[in-house]
Amino acid sequence: MSKLFYLRTSDDALIAYRLDGPAELPLLVLSNSIGTTLLMWDGQIPALSRHFRVLRYDARGHGASSVPPAPYSLARLGMDVVELLDALGVQRAHFLGLSLGGIVGQWLAVHAPERMERLVLANTSAWLGPARQWDERISEVLQAVDMQGTAATFLGNWFPATWLEGANTQVERFRAMLLATNRHGLAGSFAAVQEADLRPDLASVRLPTLVISGQYDTVTAASHGASIANSIPGARLLTLPAVHLSNVEFPREFEAAVLDFLLAR
């Protein structure tokens, strides 16, 4: 396991991050789904780090990063990435984000395109519904006795029913991440999703973009991925027969698509 480093951001949060792969290779940033840590990418590191210096980090409120008071703005989540690049002395990087990480990637493509090379947006959306539904979700997670119910809901949205029926190592890995997630960090991140509506801005994006969606995703539906791909000029779309965590459910297909796209001349 690579060493854990920490960045102190301009607003005094601590962001935990790891680096894998030779330092001389181009940088690829990995950004996580809400409710997970940088460990969600463990399966991809061997393949990706052969071609890239891989930077993965725990979003604020998650994992080994600090839990600043909620709410978190989408702009602040995006600036955490920019400040990580600044700290590493990297002017431009490739970016791969899944779910909330994909929303952050869209924000970066719109507001900091000069820092991005190629963009992969996986199982994500430009808009996830009316603000009032998020008020209810934020209230529920803050008032719950523990994270058991929240974890069960997330896992039901993330994996095929067959994976949930028996003992599944991957499901248990993600259950542990969810149960260890600070509820205030989760609520703060929900607020960033609540405010996000990138639909009007995507037509301005000029970065080479690959969109990956899950055919059976009930969170960020395949139609959401198609809408993003249709909105960004020249974007490619790949739909895998997955639910939400397509990198976990179909790792080889996911990695092959990402590498084919990022390494293309």
Rank of each mutant, 00 (worst) to 15 (best):
Leu262Met: 00
Thr162Arg: 13
Ser2Ile: 04
Leu238Phe: 02
Leu121Ser: 07
Ala235Arg: 09
Pro46Ser: 07
Ser65Trp: 05
Glu24Cys: 06
Leu237Phe: 00
Glu165Leu: 14
Asp20Ile: 04
Thr36Glu: 00
Leu39Glu: 14
Arg115Tyr: 12
Leu240Lys: 00
Thr124Tyr: 12
Leu210Glu: 01
Ala87Val: 01
Ser125Gly: 09
His51Ala: 03
Phe174Gly: 04
Arg252Leu: 11
Asp197Thr: 12
Phe154Ser: 08
Ala187Leu: 10
Val110Thr: 15
Leu202Arg: 02
Ser231Val: 08
Thr239Cys: 14
Gln143Ala: 15
Ala126Lys: 04
Gly185Cys: 09
Pro208Met: 06
Thr169Ala: 15
Arg60Ser: 01
Pro71Leu: 05
Ala16Cys: 13
Ser246Ile: 05
Gly97Asp: 05
Asp135Cys: 06
Ala167His: 14
Asp58Glu: 09
His94Val: 05
Ala75His: 12
Asn247Ile: 03
Asp146Glu: 09
Glu114Leu: 10
Met116Pro: 12
Leu27Pro: 13
Leu207Ser: 06
Leu100Glu: 09
Trp127Pro: 00
Glu83His: 11
Ser227Tyr: 14
Ala257Met: 09
His62Trp: 09
Pro71Lys: 01
Ala161Asp: 10
Asp86Gly: 09
Arg199Phe: 09
Leu263Glu: 03
Pro113Val: 12
Glu165Pro: 08
Gly35Gln: 06
Arg53Val: 07
Val54Met: 03
Ala222Ser: 14
Ala87Asp: 13
Arg252Gln: 15
Leu48Asp: 03
Leu202Ala: 02
Asp146Ala: 12
Ile34Asn: 02
Leu38Trp: 02
Leu98Ser: 14
Ala16Gly: 12
Ser65Ile: 02
Tyr17Ile: 10
Gly35Trp: 04
Gly185Thr: 04
Thr218Ala: 14
Asp11Met: 01
Phe250Arg: 06
Arg199Gln: 13
Leu155Gln: 02
Ala112Lys: 12
Thr37Gln: 03
Ser49Cys: 11
Met40Phe: 10
Ile15Glu: 01
Ile15Cys: 08
